[in-house]
Amino acid sequence: MLATVPAGARKSTTGPRDLQTAVVQASADIESARTSGDPRYLGYAQAALAPWWNAKDAPLPVILLRAQIHQHNHSFEAALADLDHALVLDPRNPQARLTRAAIQQVQGNYTAAAADCRSLALLVEPLVTADCMSRVSSHRGAARGAYRKLLAMRDRAAGMEPRLRREIELTLADISMRIGEIETARLHFDQALTATDADAYTLLTFADFLLEQREYRQVVELFERYPDYADLLLRAALASRAINAANAGQLSQRLREQYAAHQRRGDFVPSRDYARFLLDIEGKASAALDAALFNWKSQREPADALIVVRAAIATGQPAAAAPVVTFVREQGLEDVRLLPLLSHILPERRT
């Protein structure tokens, strides 16, 4: 793992002028953003690539890094355009395939994601391909089979690189949660957390798991251990409210100020977490539904579906969740958190 530069340490946003130095610096910044969850590092990375940022004929390493920055910023169409271009330049580039598959999965384009996963077969080690395919197929009505196949391959693997081990365990944990195998999911989270140093995504998904199990004090303790991870603030605020902690109001106010500051910058886009904030902290169900539906246009993961359905029920407008119902039925999505709610908001199809 590349070293993390302390937040705010940069004195200049002017990037290097030579390509090799710029690529090394931007790569380090993107890794720091992934590890810390601090979006400022993405700005540093973009600054490093400034001489080539808007160039249509940018070198391949720049195109790949630019796509990752767009991906982190949820500018998925821009990321996909860069990745499509990268694969024209280098059809066998595994990073481009992996990143494009991840974005296609987030957007619910599972057929396209599966095609990219299959293209990895001769480019990367088998576990990477298996992890990619398992993520996709587990969202298309084959969750238990995907879990068994990936688990078997993990158990046969020897000398797995720690970062890959973490990714495999997170995939297994996610599938386990969605099929209702809670203690199995917990074991996989434990493995993921010990595979490498803490990173923002692992902490975030683990905190959500603890919230769903109503293990609120553990969420608060997690935030106290990692107070610099911004995305944990929402989870800590929700947990503190649930147990009537003395600092619950203070945490909620920090969230309000955080979102207000983001909105003032002019680049604010409603997200799944913002919809959760509106619904569960502010009690503004109608605004939460608007935010959740806006987010649904570009992100269609199970958690995105869940907040749409919850907000639709809270507003008394179950029909607003119709796009989610259609998507879940068409894909055969399995999720024990979601399906009971869906059965209550719209009638079953008649045959």
Score class of each variant (00 low, 15 high):
M1N: 06
T4I: 03
A7W: 10
A9S: 15
T14S: 14
R17H: 11
T21R: 00
V23W: 14
A26D: 09
D29T: 07
R34S: 05
Y41G: 10
Y44M: 02
L49C: 03
A50K: 12
P51S: 07
W52P: 03
W52S: 04
N54H: 12
A55V: 11
K56V: 01
P59T: 15
L60C: 10
V62W: 09
H70M: 10
H72I: 00
F76T: 01
L80M: 10
L80H: 04
A102R: 04
A102P: 01
I103R: 00
Q105I: 01
G108I: 15
T111D: 08
A112W: 01
A115T: 14
A115W: 09
D116A: 06
S119P: 01
L122Q: 01
E125V: 06
L127G: 03
T129A: 14
T129N: 09
A130T: 02
S134N: 09
S134H: 12
R144L: 14
R144T: 12
G145V: 15
Y147S: 04
R148T: 03
A152C: 07
R154P: 00
R156C: 06
A157G: 04
A158W: 12
M160G: 01
M160E: 12
E161G: 05
R163W: 06
R165G: 12
R165K: 09
R166L: 13
R166F: 05
D174L: 00
D174C: 00
M177Y: 14
M177N: 10
M177I: 08
G180Y: 15
E183H: 11
A185I: 05
A185R: 08
R186H: 13
L187G: 05
L187V: 08
L187Y: 04
D190Q: 13
L193C: 07
D197E: 10
D199Y: 02
Y201P: 08
T202F: 00
T202D: 03
L204C: 12
Q218V: 04
V219H: 03
L222C: 13
D228C: 09
Y229M: 14
D231K: 12
L232G: 14
L233W: 00
L238Y: 03
R241S: 12
N244G: 06
A245I: 00
A246W: 02
S252D: 11
S252W: 04
Q253S: 10
R256K: 04
Q258D: 09
Y259L: 08
Y259C: 04
Y259D: 02
A261L: 09
Q263T: 00
Q263G: 06
G266C: 09
R272Q: 10
Y274S: 11
F277T: 07
L278V: 12
L278G: 04
L278K: 05
D280S: 03
D280M: 02
I281C: 08
G283T: 07
L289K: 08
D290V: 07
W296Q: 07
W296F: 08
K297C: 13
S298I: 09
Q299Y: 00
R300V: 14
A303G: 07
D304F: 05
D304Y: 01
A305L: 06
I307C: 13
R310K: 13
A314S: 08
A314Q: 09
A314R: 06
T315E: 15
Q317I: 01
Q317E: 15
A320E: 11
A320V: 00
V325K: 13
V325Y: 01
E330Q: 15
G332V: 03
D335G: 02
V336D: 03
L338D: 03
P340Y: 12
L341T: 00
I345M: 11
L346W: 02
E348C: 01
T351M: 04
